Simulated assay, not measured.
Amino acid sequence: MKLIVMSDSHGDRETVKAVSSLSGDATFHCGDSELSFDDPLLENIHTVRGNCDLDSRFPSSVLVEVGNKKVLAVHGHEHDVKRSLMMLYYTAKEQGADIVLFGHSHLYGAEMEDGILFLNPGSTRLPRGGKEATYAVIEWGETLRISFHDMNSGVVDSLEIKNFTKEH
């Protein structure tokens, strides 16, 4: 299975179009698209509302099953992710999530906690901390592979996790 994940595109339609054109089993936008809910670019993307999104029709979170994994997507501002992942961790446990996708900090990264993958794809438009603009690709089979890509689809960073088979 393969997930394509982006966040914090802040009105940049071209990056949303480019990233969403990639092949995957599901595509997610973790908020601050600054597009309207009914924008055709977002038609096949699981999209949540960020703190810069004015269209209130976006949900604050989505929980979908992809393959045998429950994927929770949020923006992160309502979970105080710039300080800690603790609030998001409790939400993930309550929702039974295997994978948690979030944005807001504009910094890419991934970590495992109690068998739950927490992933921030970074920002496709306004990265922070001197980092490049990025999106993420998550692939799993026997091994979980996470890669962060720049806007030219070059791999900026990656990691592999063996035995990603947590069951509920």
Rank of each mutant, 00 (worst) to 15 (best):
E43G: 09
N44K: 15
I45A: 03
H46Y: 13
H46Q: 12
V48N: 00
R49L: 09
R49I: 11
G50T: 09
N51Q: 06
C52Y: 05
C52Q: 10
D53V: 00
L54Q: 08
S56L: 13
R57N: 04
F58S: 01
P59V: 00
P59N: 00
S60C: 02
S61F: 09
S61Y: 07
V62E: 06
L63Q: 07
L63I: 10
V64C: 03
E65V: 04
V66S: 04
G67W: 02
N68R: 14
N68E: 15
K69E: 11
V71R: 12
V71H: 12
A73G: 01
V74R: 00
G76C: 04
E78F: 08
D80F: 12
R83W: 05
R83M: 13
S84I: 01
S84D: 13
L85S: 13
M86L: 08
Y90K: 06
T91N: 14
T91H: 14
T91W: 07
T91Q: 15
T91G: 10
A92Y: 11
E94Y: 13
E94M: 14
Q95C: 08
Q95G: 05
Q95S: 13
A97I: 09
D98W: 07
V100T: 12
F102N: 09
F102M: 02
G103V: 12
G103C: 07
G103M: 04
H104F: 10
L107I: 14
L107Y: 11
Y108H: 11
Y108Q: 03
A110D: 03
M112I: 13
E113K: 15
E113H: 13
E113D: 10
D114P: 08
D114H: 08
G115T: 07
I116L: 10
L117T: 06
L119A: 08
N120D: 13
